[in-house]
Each structure stands twice: as C-alpha cells, then as structure tokens.
Design a protein around this nucleic acid. Structure first.
Length: 276
DNA sequence: ATCTATGCCTGGTGGC
DNA sequence: TGCCACCAGGCATAGA
C-alpha cells in the first residue's frame, strides 16, 4: 500500500510527465472514484494545466490553474501514462487526455482511492487534510506536541502511529519497521511511553522514510509506483512480511499478530512489552 | 472526547 | 476443477 515514500516517488515521477500539460478530456469508466458530480468535475477541470504536484502525508495535490486535484491512492491506486486508449484494463477508472496526445490514467483494483477537486487555496479546509498531523519525515516536527498526543492515548502505540492526525505518512509497513528499530512492542499502550521513547520513534520513522524515499519506495503485494518502476526498499525490511524468518538482530523468529485489526510483524525478543 | 466496529472493494488463497 | 469463506487494509462514518 502506498505510504509516504511511495506517494513521494509517484509525485516525482509524474512531475516529469505532467508539468505544463493541459487536460483536454476526462474519461471515467468508474466515476465513483471522483467525489464530485462527474459533469461538474469535467466542466471545472477541462482546460486546466498541471503546474506542479505536491504531497501532504499520503495525499497527492495536483496544482492546476484554478483548482487543486486532491488524490489519495489508498490501498492500490496507481497512476501511469499511456500513449493511446488501446487495451484499457478494467481497473483503469479515470483517464485524463493531455495536450500532447498522451493520457494520465488512474488504475485501482480495489476502487478505494479518491479524487476531489477544490478551489486553489481551499484544499487545507477539507476535513481530510485539515486534521493531518506533522509529516512523518519533517525534521522540524514539534516532538512536544506529538508526545502530548501519545500521553493522552490509551491505545496501542501502533494504532497511534497509524493515526494520521498524530503524524501523517506512516502506513502498515513503515510502522512495523519503526517499532522494530525503536525496540517497542506494537501493543504497548501509547501513554506508557516516555518522552525519549516517543522522540526516538519519531526520529527512527524519519530515518526509515528518508531511506525508503531514496530507494524509490517499497514494492510488496500489489504496490508499484507509476510507469512500472519498482521500489527497492523491500530489500531493507527487517520484520514486515518476514514471519518465521530470523530477526536480523537476535535471530529470534519473527512473529505475526493482529493489532487494531492490522497484520503486524515483530521480533518478540527485541520488542518486549513493559512490566506493569 | 476517545475509542472501536463497519463498509467500501476485488483478487488471491486455502479448504473441501 | 469449482465453489466458497476469508483475508489484505486507509480512511470515513456510525456507534459505544
């Protein structure tokens, strides 16, 4: 599933293809991806030019002339460029025809992704964007504010790290890796962590995310960035997906449990819960 | 105010 | 081989 590094990779890849291109036409075989009414979406977006692409958390923000197209890939969304409309897949749900005759196509097997068009400058008033916390790789993030949220949370630390209103950008993969590196059990109650532990979590998350960005993200299951380019961070994973394999630190077998309904990988020796 | 459960979706997998 | 139940999970929403 695309998390911060994957969305960042998609953003950078797409910028090369899209900046300066105008949207000529929209084809939407499955318009439910688009939150607005399709006709008004088309009315507004046709003729608009891609001027830039930004990322906030896991959201892509396509900067147009008068609007911002806010796009979330959720589990399996991907963008790619196609040269013609030949042999469309049944999973291509929204296709933008560009000035240069090429097409930007949104592909999403599970149809979980969303697109929303808003007036430029109003995007951060959206419920979804307005509540997001600090970027998980922001070196200027205020750890005091983050720690306060941990201190008040009687939920497992993994659940809090996945809560995008605390910090934004982490998903299931990078949370497991961050907890492993910090030697914290995913079911530890967030309010039981010390300031230093929270501080280390944030620091380690940043380190992992920046390394993953440098490697083009992680390719597991169905994620690949646009244009068929695979990431390489999957070779760096320590625990995620590695159930039954030896822990790279202590060789104990990695186990898989459920935390907040999510598959969770950890080393039961390196990541122990605190004594109460 | 906090937290948990459910729905959205489809393809892949394992059991019979 | 075919059928079916079940799993994967980010986020919005409803409910406790």
């Amino acid at each position: 599933m695309p998390e911060l590094p994957e969305v960042e990779t998609v953003k950078e890849t797409l910028k090369n293809f899209l900046i300066g291109q105008k949207i000529r036409k929209v084809i939407a075989p499955y318009p439910n991806i688009i939150k607005d009414d399709l006709d008004s979406f088309k009315d507004k977006i046709i003729g608009q030019q891609f001027n830039d692409i930004l990322r906030y958390g896991k959201y892509l923000l396509f900067q147009l002339d008068d609007y911002v197209l806010v796009s979330h890939l959720r589990m399996e969304g991907k963008y790619f460029i196609r040269n013609s409309l030949k042999e469309l897949s049944k999973h291509e749900h929204v296709i933008f025809e560009l000035d240069n005759g090429k097409f930007l196509s949104y592909h999403d097997v599970r149809k979980f992704g969303t697109m929303e068009l808003v007036f430029k400058g109003t995007e951060f008033q959206l419920e979804s964007l307005s509540k997001l916390g600090f970027e998980a790789n922001d070196e200027n993030a205020d750890v005091n504010i983050i720690y306060e949220k941990f201190r008040k949370a009687n939920r497992p630390v993994k659940t809090v790290l996945l809560d995008q209103t605390v910090i934004t950008g982490l998903g299931n993969i990078y949370v497991d890796e961050t907890l492993f590196l910090t030697k914290i059990h995913p079911q530890e109650i967030a309010s039981h962590l010390s300031f230093d532990e929270v501080s280390n979590l944030i620091k380690n998350a940043r380190t992992i995310l920046n390394k993953a960005i440098a490697l083009g993200g992680t390719t597991i299951r169905t994620y690949q960035s646009s244009l068929g380019v695979d990431g390489r961070f999957q070779n760096e994973l320590n625990v995620h997906t590695l159930v039954g394999k030896p822990c790279p630190v202590c060789s104990t077998e990695i186990i898989k449990i459920k935390v907040g309904g999510r598959g969770t990988y950890l080393c039961p020796n390196c990541q122990k819960r605190k004594e109460l």
